[in-house]
Computed example of a mutant assay.
Amino acid sequence: MSSSTHKTVLIIEDDPDIRHLLGIRLKHAGYEPIKAANGTDGLRLVHERRPALVVLDIGLPGMDGWQVLQRIRDVTTTPVMILSARGLEAEKVRGLQSGADDYVTKPFGHQELVARIGVLLRRATDEGEPETEYADPRLQIDIRSRAVHADGVNVQLTPGEFRLLLALIQHVGQILSPEQLLELAWDDPTTTNTSRVKFTVLRLRRKLGWDDPATSPIESVRGFGYRYRQIDSDLAVASQG
């Protein structure tokens, strides 16, 4: 894959002014912006151009941004940043639960937006990640290929979910606060929104099939945070029975 492919950013936005100005900002920052004015064209470009990141407006005509996000998540773990005029917490929570990696409300500062895009792209690459594997009775991870198997089942994770899981297994047995997980998994100094951690943990548990608190290796420690606990073979077998 060429370096330009790594820097391709797809903007799916129906407002021509926002689409144009954001494209200029991204180009000046060294990215290759590609643009779509609706969800159908955006999904076509996702398949044809395989962008490194998607900036997605929620209020699209026809197929709205929620539908586009779902279809993107059906086929790829490419980072998705939502743009929306809807600033209610419930909307932000919905976006993060649906698989978005960031949620930015309009109006937004272009410099901050480009900085956030840089953070997402940096975290989505393999730079600095050890080429190794992790395995215990419940979980196997090939960190280089990002392949995850939970209880023998292959699981597809978004980049944010994978980074969170990686942060937890790299600190087995250690309680990590939401603030620590924000730093480890997102490296985003512009936010203190710890609800992002909460809902990513919930989504991660659901995907891994670890909804039962009694047997889930991802443990919530009330008032402190989360930790990954290695489950012994007997409990692992019991949880699958």
Rank of each mutant, 00 (worst) to 15 (best):
T5L: 13
T8D: 02
I12H: 02
P16C: 09
D17T: 13
L22N: 02
G23C: 09
G23T: 07
I24S: 08
I24C: 08
I34V: 15
A36D: 04
T40Q: 12
D41E: 14
D41I: 01
G42M: 07
R44Q: 12
L53C: 15
L53A: 10
G62A: 12
G65H: 08
T76P: 03
T76E: 06
V80H: 04
L83W: 01
A85K: 08
L88Q: 13
A90R: 15
K92Y: 06
A100M: 09
D101W: 00
Y103M: 09
Y103Q: 07
K106N: 06
G109S: 15
E112A: 11
L113N: 04
A115H: 09
R116L: 08
G118V: 05
A124I: 00
T132Q: 13
P137S: 07
L139S: 07
R144T: 13
R144M: 07
R146W: 00
G152I: 10
E161L: 13
A167E: 03
H171D: 11
G173C: 04
L176Y: 00
E183Y: 02
T191E: 06
N193M: 09
V197L: 05
K198F: 12
F199T: 10
T200Q: 14
W210I: 06
D211T: 08
P213Y: 00
A214V: 09
A214K: 12
S216Y: 08
I218T: 08
V221S: 10
Q230V: 14
A236F: 01
V237Y: 08
V237T: 14
A238T: 10
